[in-house]
Design a protein around this nucleic acid. Structure first.
Lengths: 162, 162
DNA sequence: GTAGTGATGAAATTATTTTGCAAATTTGGG
DNA sequence: CCCAAATTTGCAAAATAATTTCATCACTAC
């Protein structure tokens, strides 16, 4: 073991491959090879290694929420009453376990949690607040920010050549 | 044209296929077919149709930020001075154009924008605030929430059978 | 009932992924 | 600087998977 949890450093080939896969993981390895100047076999082995090492966390299709009946995205700031570890863990599990909660971050600063939720209607959002917030008496208060425009979404990260 | 922008309704086969692809878009079409009870050809045609219609927005590999030198995630709430359309558009473009900004939402309520950013260091975050916020005199103020725990990330949405 | 439309499965075709192996490259001592 | 070990590569074959073709089936409108 070397760095965090597994695996060695990534070289510039790895980064170039990741850069392509972050944009479209359906790109054939042959095409990737042409772009980065490696054989498709080498590309394949590198991708497999990065999957095994956990550099690549997953491979996902992304669905347009509007096209599946989820026109509302809401950002919620949640403030808790107590920072007791067991209570925080319970809150984390409850937030993470809800399928309408797309993302959940535990943060420092003026709030304790930030959630990104996707719902079919504002009344569904109201139901969610009852479920997750009013139903949890460690939640002191929450602020609702309704998304008017999803300007940029995605999970891609910058991959500066090391 | 029928609903929003293109394409007909999704049936329960489509939703079952999307459900699988949202979890792992590398799943072979043959395996998907077995799970949803369709031939691989039918699965293939449905996937292609949903791509063309924009139901499937994209196919991405997700990289662990920790493994590529980006240990800090920050949520930022941005408040603007003026809501003039041209100024808002300029802000949107500037936020969306920055590679360290992973997500950007324009919201109602107590803030105007919420950003999720990923940075290699807090000094890189400071540089980002100079670039995006102090360098834009339509930004009135911003609140920084440093992420301690990325409890749930992803872009998957709930696909209740319609 | 029948023409028209659209979706299906089976099978054939095409393309991609995966593996074996020898050669090339890199790494770490002497 | 050179050698030996370890790693990585490219090529080509083998195994899988994606895509197209085509005949058939189901449904609709007339």
């Amino acid at each position: 073991m070397r760095d965090s949890s597994e695996g060695g450093r990534l070289d510039s080939f790895d980064l170039a491959i990741l850069d392509i896969l972050q944009k479209d993981n359906g790109t054939p390895q042959r095409v990737i090879g042409e772009k980065v100047n490696l054989s498709s076999a080498a590309v394949h082995r590198r991708i497999r290694r990065m999957q095994e090492e956990g550099v690549i966390v997953g491979n996902y299709a992304v669905v347009d929420p509007l096209r599946v009946g989820l026109p509302f995205t809401v950002v919620v700031e949640v403030h808790v009453e107590s920072e007791r570890l067991d209570l925080l863990d319970a809150a984390k599990r409850s937030f993470a376990g809800d399928p309408q909660v797309q993302q959940c971050y535990y943060v420092t600063g003026e709030a304790d949690f930030v959630l990104i939720v996707t719902v079919p209607s504002m009344s569904a959002y109201e139901a969610l607040t009852r479920r997750l917030f009013f139903g949890n008496n460690n939640v002191k208060k929450f602020r609702t920010l309704v998304v008017m425009d999803r300007i940029k979404t995605g999970l891609a990260v910058t991959l500066d050549d090391a």
